[in-house]
């Protein structure tokens, strides 16, 4: 039976919600908790991760026919480490305060399971178009995840969004949300919400199927 290989469009759409890297696959949790105290660092991290993901996917897709299977992890790691170095240096050169704020979390993109998993699952098996679509889709999913956590943490913890003050200065804020415990609590609650929404959708779909059957 021929294996159904997902088309580029399917890869793109899959990465955003159905196979969301954070909410469904639970990959890349470290940056999701670490840099989401405010929206600006979160979006910078998404940009850096997207850059590394797209470049790594493209390169591994282009050389996928040349590699013996057991050497691929080595090549993936080499590629990802190179592009993370490039991203880190570019950030330090052109946005030094943001680079200091993000600190060690930009180099930690190298061990972000999300990127190696996309290289392994998609770009080592399909052509550059599918790999590119997959990378963009997964990056959008990552953006969604980080934006949701960062919005909750920044609004509750600081009363601002993207640095713009939304509530008056004297209004009491939940400082806990900016601290590490707040990160865990925010992500845990959002994960629970995502699971609940998914279960409700599944219940509705199966109810309508049972109704039409």
């Amino acid at each position: 039976m021929p294996v159904h290989e997902p088309t580029p469009l399917e890869r793109f759409l899959n990465g955003i919600l159905p196979e969301n890297p954070v909410y469904r696959q639970l990959l890349g949790l470290c940056p999701t908790l670490a840099v989401t105290a405010a929206m600006k660092p979160a979006m910078t991290m998404v940009g850096a991760t997207a850059f590394v993901l797209i470049c790594a996917n493209l390169i591994t897709s282009l050389i996928r026919h040349l590699l013996k299977p057991h050497l691929r992890i080595l090549v993936f790691t080499l590629t990802i480490a190179t592009f993370v170095t490039i991203a880190d240096r570019t950030l330090a050169a052109f946005a030094y305060p943001m680079s200091k704020l993000l600190g060690p979390y930009v180099p930690l993109i190298i061990v972000n399971c999300m990127i190696i998993s996309r290289c392994e699952v998609c770009s080592s098996k399909q052509g550059p178009k599918a790999a590119l679509a997959d990378a963009i889709g997964v990056s959008l999913g990552f953006l969604l995840a980080l934006a949701s956590v960062a919005t909750v943490r920044e609004i509750l913890g600081n009363g601002s969004w993207f640095g713009i003050q939304l509530v008056p200065e004297s209004f009491p804020t939940l400082i806990l949300m900016i601290l590490p415990p707040g990160a865990f609590l925010a992500l845990g609650s959002l994960l629970g919400l995502a699971t609940w929404l998914g279960q409700r959708r599944k219940a509705r779909v199966s109810a309508s199927e049972a109704g039409s059957a």
Partner: peptide, 25 residues
């Protein structure tokens, strides 16, 4: 040979980045 070639290409890329961006950093 393939691994060495890849390492060479990436090394050259990184060296270029280093020369360009170190002064700015």
């Amino acid at each position: 040979w393939l691994i060495l070639l890849l390492a060479g290409v990436f090394g050259a890329l990184l060296a270029a980045i280093h020369l360009e961006l170190s002064p700015r950093i």
